[in-house]
Simulated assay, not measured.
Amino acid sequence: MTAGPFDHILNWRLLAGSHAFPGPDGGTCINEAAIVAAGLPYKAIQATEDCPPCFSRPLAAYALGINDAMPDAERPRLMAFVLRLSGSADSEVVETERTEFLALESVRRILPPLLDTAGLPALAARCEIAAGSTDAMAAARTAESQGAVLAQAASHRRAWLQGARLAAVSRTATAAVRAFGDARCAAEVAEGAAPFAEGIWLMAVAILDEALAIGRQAPEIDLLRARERLDAARASSVGA
């Protein structure tokens, strides 16, 4: 999923990190932009806990994680979600389902390209066909341990590039295991794989899109009204 018309209709620039107040060209993270678009009191978002309670915690955590890790050229894809975060909070059961979905799909879709690049196609296939969370966690743990052992062996051979790939496998698989309890770690899976495999950010955005379809949907925010709020925030920063 790409930003489509949202990036130029809303006329806002997404940046990594937390921001005390939007600049004249926008200049906030995805969650801060969502706050402005929804007409909520502005606040800098340094962690998921800073988000308004109407934001789904796992969805906001994943969005914040990929927002901060994405290259500038990829980040506009997230503008498609500016109107979908406020009001997405749901029951504990649904939020757990969302967290598990983000983790499971990260193992199924994002780990395999990295594993293939590192020369571990059988393990990549195992991740792709993981039937559920238990299978996915087991596959990720195997990748974590194999990556570490093989990276050390590669360093002894002075096969530096292969060692870097395998070390990335181990680190990224560690994040994948942790993602089943912390959605921010699912974003770290994408961050770990992106330097070594193509199309990772596009997959991460697709996973966020699908996770947002689970449970309560954010109430519709009029696009033009959101644009007015974003414009007003920019104007306030100029006059400050």
Rank of each mutant, 00 (worst) to 15 (best):
R75W: 11
R77L: 11
L78I: 09
V82G: 06
G87R: 01
A89C: 03
E92H: 12
V93G: 05
V94L: 10
V94Y: 05
R98W: 05
T99A: 08
E100N: 14
F101L: 03
S106F: 05
S106G: 15
S106P: 04
V107C: 04
R109M: 03
L111E: 00
L111T: 00
L114D: 01
T117A: 15
G119K: 06
L123M: 02
C127H: 01
A139E: 04
A140G: 09
A140T: 07
T142N: 10
G147N: 00
A148Y: 12
A153D: 08
A153K: 05
A154L: 06
R157S: 01
R157H: 05
A159Y: 06
A159N: 13
A159M: 07
W160Y: 14
L161P: 05
Q162M: 12
G163F: 09
L166R: 13
A168S: 15
R171D: 14
A175H: 15
A175S: 15
A183H: 12
R184C: 07
A187M: 08
E188R: 13
E188N: 12
E188I: 05
V189C: 11
V189Y: 10
P195T: 12
P195L: 13
I200S: 08
M203W: 04
M203I: 14
A204G: 08
V205L: 03
A206V: 06
G215D: 07
D222Y: 02
